[in-house]
């Protein structure tokens, strides 16, 4: 498979000898216009890789923060076509920052796998994380995605034991996303020492970069988690910042975009200062 923006970004991070910051926000949260402005501001604020959530009505692996974020976006009229449109618009001014679409299988399946992959490539998407398509179903979506040049990023978890890890890694590309806890997004903070050991275990089994996520909320946590890893993912904290910035009617305020970007700036600074 040819080199992707994700591959190039991790090479750059390695050259700079620092761990990258992967940021997650839901596409269309809290509304399409505000979401576009957040997306456009993320690279300058210090996001090295952008995970853009494809909102789903039933986000079974997500905690309350991302559930609420997903529902806000859907309520504001977000659809798959609009999510892909956001990426295309972002690409007009940024051809470097990788974008990974993250979400659940059903909206992709209903859009049509082949059509989705073609439109994602056309829009400038670099990779996919689809929470509920395990390696056992690789021929459905993972292999077709690789065939059109998209990275398919797999989650490895504390329950992915030595026996299973090779299966999870087999068709993974771009990077491996290590889920630091058994749980949902935004839950309790991970045990840092344990995570370091787990990341070591995964790195011993692959040459791919490893990003660590789930439960990372502060710059301090990000900094300590980052040791030994190639990137840290922050999501729930960012969408919670969106939620807190909203007016009484649930609409975006002047605070919304800066609230997210300032948090990203703080996280990025922490990761660059080690």
């Amino acid at each position: 498979m040819t080199e992707t923006r994700i591959d190039r970004r991790f090479a750059k991070l390695k050259a700079e000898d620092r761990a990258g910051l992967v940021t997650f926000v839901s596409a269309g949260d809290p509304d399409p216009e505000t979401s576009k402005r957040i997306l456009a501001g993320l690279p300058a604020a210090g996001a090295d890789i952008i995970e853009l959530g494809m909102p789903f009505s039933d986000p079974m692996a997500d905690g309350p923060a991302i559930q609420a974020s997903s529902l806000r976006a859907l309520k504001a009229g977000q659809r798959m076509t609009k999510t892909l449109g956001m990426v295309a618009e972002f690409r007009k001014s940024d051809n470097e920052t990788p974008i990974v679409l993250m979400g659940y299988y059903n909206p992709i399946y209903v859009y049509g796998n082949e059509r989705f992959l073609a439109d994602a490539v056309k829009a400038g998407v670099d990779g996919l994380i689809v929470v509920d398509v395990p390696p056992e179903a690789d021929e459905e979506l993972c292999l077709p995605a690789l065939a059109v040049g998209l990275n398919f990023i797999r989650l490895a978890t504390p329950t992915t034991d030595a026996k299973r890890l090779p299966k999870v890694l087999a068709n993974t590309s771009g990077f491996v996303y290590y889920v630091s806890i058994t749980g949902i997004t935004g839950a309790a903070a991970p045990d840092v020492a344990k995570v370091h050991g787990e990341v070591k275990r995964i790195k011993a089994a692959t040459t791919l970069p490893v990003a660590v996520g789930f439960g990372v909320k502060t710059g301090e946590q990000a900094q300590s988690i980052a040791k030994g890893a190639d990137a840290v993912v922050v999501g729930s904290a960012l969408v919670s910042a969106i939620e807190k910035s909203l007016g009484e009617n649930g609409a975006a305020t002047g605070e919304t975009v800066p609230a997210v970007l300032d948090l990203v700036k703080g996280l990025a600074a922490a990761l660059r200062s080690r």
Binding site: M60, A61, Y105, V131, D132, V133, P134, E136, A137, R154, L155, A156, T157, P158, T159, T160, D161, R164, V168, V179, T182, G183
Partner: peptide, 20 residues
Amino acid sequence: ERGHFGLFGGRFVAETLMPL
């Protein structure tokens, strides 16, 4: 053996649950 009834069924769950 993979849980399919024709097109239907399967095992579409998050990785954390797969081993279980």
